[in-house]
Computed example of a mutant assay.
Amino acid sequence: MHRLKPLTPLGAVTPRVDTIGTLTITEIVHQALASIAAREGQMEALQQKLPLPLPDVGKTRTQGAFSAFWTGPAQWMIVANHDQHEALASEIKQMVGQTASVVEQTDGWCRFDVSGAALYDLFERLSSAPVRRMTKGDVIRGTVEHLGAFLWRLDQDHMAVIAPRSSAASLHHALIAAARSIA
């Protein structure tokens, strides 16, 4: 019999937490993700079937157990706690039926939350995204170091970075190196 163990995007059994100066970089592994794309002419019907209103360009919405952020024209990522919504994509597909295409994304992405007083300084070294102008609930698709990523402003001094899982080690290295450069 196989004895499989889930590993974090960084290849460990437990999520990594690094504190450097005033910054804390935390590997987040308890989130389920599903992408959703409205089908032609189905936007209004889709919106009526979902448990939360879909956000506008560059924004996020949270309602109940679900959050959503805009990823492209008529496309969003839905986020929920993995323990309660392990089969998130299936749940969402049941809700929306033929109004949208839904794809499981949980293991395709990594997420690092960065918090602390030097948040702006860190991201100004890594990205051209206007982090100082971002407010709570803003999301930007751009680059961090040389990697494509979403930057999601969670609070005044708290940012989530979501990138392809295959780049987790490179992203983590970039975050750590930048944090050490300002510590």
Rank of each mutant, 00 (worst) to 15 (best):
I140M: 11
T99H: 07
L119D: 00
S115R: 14
I28Y: 04
A160M: 10
M1N: 10
K59D: 06
L122D: 00
E104Q: 14
L88R: 03
L175S: 02
S167W: 06
R111A: 05
C110R: 04
G148P: 05
E44A: 15
T19G: 03
T26I: 10
I162R: 07
T71Y: 01
G108V: 01
S115N: 12
L4V: 14
T106N: 10
H85N: 12
M159N: 00
K136N: 12
W76F: 05
S101C: 08
Q94V: 11
T60P: 03
G58N: 07
T14A: 13
A87I: 09
G58K: 01
A87K: 12
G58F: 01
V161R: 02
I36G: 06
V79A: 05
G21D: 05
P73M: 08
I92F: 05
S170T: 10
A163K: 03
I36W: 03
L50T: 05
G41T: 03
M134K: 11
I182Y: 04
R16I: 13
K49S: 13
Q84K: 12
K49E: 08
A149D: 01
I140V: 15
S167V: 12
D113V: 14
D121K: 15
V57K: 14
L23W: 01
H85M: 11
H2D: 11
K136W: 02
A45N: 14
D113M: 14
M134H: 10
A129H: 05
L119G: 03
V96S: 10
H173N: 07
D155Q: 12
E86D: 11
R16Y: 04
L10F: 10
H158M: 08
G72P: 06
G97C: 09
L7G: 01
L4S: 13
L151G: 01
T22F: 00
P9R: 05
L151E: 02
V29P: 02
V114I: 14
V144W: 02
G108A: 12
V96M: 06
L147E: 07
G72Q: 08
S181W: 04
T14N: 09
A34W: 03
L23M: 05
G11F: 04
D83F: 12
F66I: 09
E91I: 13
T24D: 08
S128F: 08
V13K: 14
R165A: 15
L52C: 09
A89R: 03
A32Y: 00
W152H: 14
L54R: 04
A118L: 12
G58W: 02
G116H: 01
I78C: 07
P130F: 08
V114G: 00
Q63C: 06
I28H: 04
L4T: 13
Q105P: 04
L88Y: 09
A32D: 04
S67Q: 15
G41I: 07
Q63A: 12
L122K: 00
R111F: 01
R180T: 08
M95C: 09
S128Y: 07
K5T: 10
M77L: 14
Q156K: 11
E104A: 13
R39V: 08
R141T: 09
V139L: 00
L54K: 06
M95W: 15
A118V: 03
I140D: 02
I162C: 07
M77W: 02
V96L: 09
I20D: 04
W152N: 13
A168H: 02
H146T: 13
V57C: 04
W70F: 11
